[in-house]
Design a protein around this nucleic acid. Structure first.
Length: 409
RNA sequence: GGGAGAGUUCCCGAGUGGCCAAAGGGGACAGACUGUAAAUCUGCUGCUUUAUAGCUUCGAUGGUCCGAAUCCAUCCUCUCCCA
């Protein structure tokens, strides 16, 4: 008999909190369970933060259970205050719909929606129609303000100020669970560990309204060792959409991960057997690097494709071993008007390629020795690149790891 | 509704009329060292072809003044106390 999915989650360190471990293990081994995870469509692409939830749903589906993706078309209009220090920007209904559509497209890569094997529902379907008084009388009675205020997730907001609209988020999420159980016999809610309060709210609501036993399970959050959420870079989130974060950049994000995170990420995000992960020699740089490469490769193939992962890997190998491989690196085609007298100023090229935000920044980069063109270091801010070089495509290296091909029309 | 206070550059935070493009810290970026890691050290951090120069910036708008982040008026947002 195969290992119970729940035990598999546990052994890989995925589980953070569970409402009733034994009951959950039991339920998952006895029947095909319908469970749900909510996603708030606040941006037009999924990012690494959602990734782990998708992996989990995929595992569940493989084990024969039925996932419901709950799009928070309604809740997004309110904004989850959990862990946020500021109020969220309000989105219009059109924006939310657009984002939800994009989510669906990206998710079908991980989850099989055919033949009702997985469902996607939108809580806007019921939340938008709610009548305020009915809602208060049916749902509101079951929530204790005292209890909510004591919850950890509101603490930080109580210092900064919390508006009433956000305070209601928890009720709405709890109500979602009630609706999903009533309509789809959904018995479990999954989420990141930051969702714990919201999830137990829903579990309790089901019990109070219908005396129904349902369960909640939260998963470890992917965080860096400073406790920040993973998947954020200076430029923003690492997206799953190749248009927003190219497979190469995606690959490099994982390739450059902190030593201390490698094993954890392998456990949480890949299917590589546990023993193998635990046997990685963490004392040698070479073996750690090999593990990072493996991680990056596995994840890139999952999110994009094996082909993309291979391309990213070979591009990276070539670049870092000194060979110029211009094929898969980010590139920019510049307008001919930056060329004067058969050459273009290096500063203009840097700004044009988006490698520097302003000429001042570009100058700094050059002066500090951070720029090479076709392997030759440039240290003079007045330097130029000859037109024929640009025509063939010049490879600019910024810092240690950023390569960019620049050519001209 | 009454009273008190706050809004400064990516973030925190100093600055109460010229010496302010604005201290300090964090972050980011670049360099050295490394393993495409971390830690450490150094540089750097509004824009403008170099600048002892010019321009834009200190919640918003208008005003006082030779000169405003700093003073005045109105407005907006937030926090705290009382109701």
């Amino acid at each position: 008999m195969e290992q119970n999915v729940f035990d598999m989650f546990k052994s890989r360190g995925l589980v953070a909190q569970a409402t009733d471990e034994d009951a959950i293990r039991d339920l998952l081994s006895k029947e095909k369970v319908t469970f749900y995870t909510g996603f708030d469509p606040t941006a037009d692409s999924l990012h690494v933060g959602h990734f782990m939830q998708l992996i989990i749903m995929r595992h569940m589906q493989k084990a024969g259970h039925r996932p419901i993706i709950l799009l928070g078309g309604g809740t997004t209009m309110v904004g989850d205050p959990t862990g946020k220090t500021d109020m969220r920007k309000m989105l219009t209904q059109e924006e939310i719909q657009h984002n939800a559509d994009e989510f669906k497209r990206q998710m079908s890569k991980f989850i099989d929606f055919s033949d009702g094997k997985a469902l996607m529902v939108n809580n806007a379907d019921w939340l938008l129609k709610l009548n305020y008084l009915d809602f208060l009388r049916e749902i509101g009675v079951h929530f204790s303000v005292n209890k909510m205020l004591a919850a950890e997730c509101f603490k930080s907001r109580l210092e900064k100020g919390l508006s009433f609209i956000e305070f209601n988020y928890m009720l709405m999420q709890s109500y979602d669970f009630l609706r999903l159980r009533r309509e789809y016999n959904c018995k479990m809610e999954f989420g990141g560990n930051d969702q714990w309060s919201n999830i137990i709210g829903g579990v309790e609501l089901n019990r109070r309204c219908d005396s129904a036993d349902v369960y909640g399970l939260t998963f470890t959050l992917l965080t860096t060792k400073e406790g920040k959420k993973m998947g954020k870079t200076e430029k923003g989130a690492v997206w799953l959409d190749p248009e927003k974060t190219s497979p190469y950049e995606f690959f490099q994000y994982w390739r450059n991960i902190d030593d201390a995170e490698v094993q954890n990420c392998l456990k949480l995000l890949t299917d590589i057997p546990l023993e193998e992960i635990e046997n990685i020699d963490m004392t040698s740089g070479a073996s750690i690097n090999a593990a990072k490469e493996r991680l990056a490769f596995e994840l890139t193939s999952l999110v994009h494709s094996t082909e993309d992962a291979e391309k990213a890997l070979s591009t990276a190998k070539n670049l870092f071993s000194g060979d110029m491989d211009a094929e898969h690196m980010p590139s920019t085609v510049l307008n001919a008007d930056i060329v004067a007298d058969g050459k273009a100023a290096i500063l203009d090229v840097l700004v044009g390629a988006g490698l520097a935000a302003s000429k001042g920044e570009a100058r700094r980069l050059v002066v500090q020795g951070g720029i090479s063109v076709d392997g030759d270091k440039i240290d003079d801010a007045a330097a130029t690149i000859a037109l024929d070089k640009l025509k063939n495509g010049a490879i600019i290296k910024k810092g240690k790891k950023i390569y960019h091909k620049v050519s001209i029309l």
